[in-house]
Design a binder for these strands. Sequence first.
DNA 1: ACAGGAACCTGATAGC
DNA 2: TGCTATCAGGTTCCTG
Length: 274
Amino acid sequence: MPEMPEVETIRRTLIDKVSGRRIEEVEFLLSRLVKWPSAGEFQAVLTSKTIVNLTRRGKYLLFHLNDQHIMVVHLRMTGRLSYALPGMEMDRFTRIIFKLDNGDRLIYADTRTLGTLYLLAPDELWRISGLANMGPEPLSEEFSLSYFTDMLKKRQGNIKAVLLNQKYIGGLGNIYVDESMAIAGIHPERIASSLTNSEIEQLFYAINKVIEDGIVHGGTTFRDYRDGSGRSGSHQHHLAVYGRKAAPCFTCGTPIVWKSVAGRGTHFCPDCQK
DNA sequence: ACAGGAACCTGATAGC
DNA sequence: TGCTATCAGGTTCCTG
């Protein structure tokens, strides 16, 4: 579910609360979400460790611990991380509970249970291929117009598939990809290498703008997404095409088309996007 | 390299 | 009301 703006919002709403907190106990309601090491070892190593920092790379959250280990969390489609005070009602889909030294809890909840957790030593990040092989992120220095241009010129797949591929750009997902293409006026089935320099520049601007706005608005809440304090985002009120199947395009009034592209539900204006 | 589909899961909703 | 089909902010693996 969450894309870079949502994961970044979760990071920002959690960092001050969890930093400096010692994990006293890890309680599993569903231990199979831990992919490395074994659930037992994950629990044993994590217990009594202190969280010293919380960072993000693409859609991954990295909890840095005082012994240099890193707990890596990927929320996939419906994962949620939230900070809970004593007496707060438990999320119905709570899967893992981290009990903290001040009596509060960090809750991992996940409806579809597709999320993944890892506990790694600093030199073990290669174990997560999606993290190790991730491309540059929007809004970063590495994600430059020249990188973007050179990369697209080499790709023969459709632009939608390329933008979703985390090894080329880290952090984009289905919503923000559709929005970026809408803003740039690019049809999702265009072959990436066929884009002109002018189109590439517009798309580059659109991607950065859409991600920046998404962060400013605290993410997009369609159904499951909540930030670290349990609050919804508001970027859903600023979407041009995503979730607007058959509704009139804000620019030309033509009904927004829904079609499966690159294996994902894709929204676009057939008139504005060429 | 790339496309398409399946798999991993559970739940909400639309349609009949 | 109730049953069925479809879809869902992701990623990976397999086949062609």
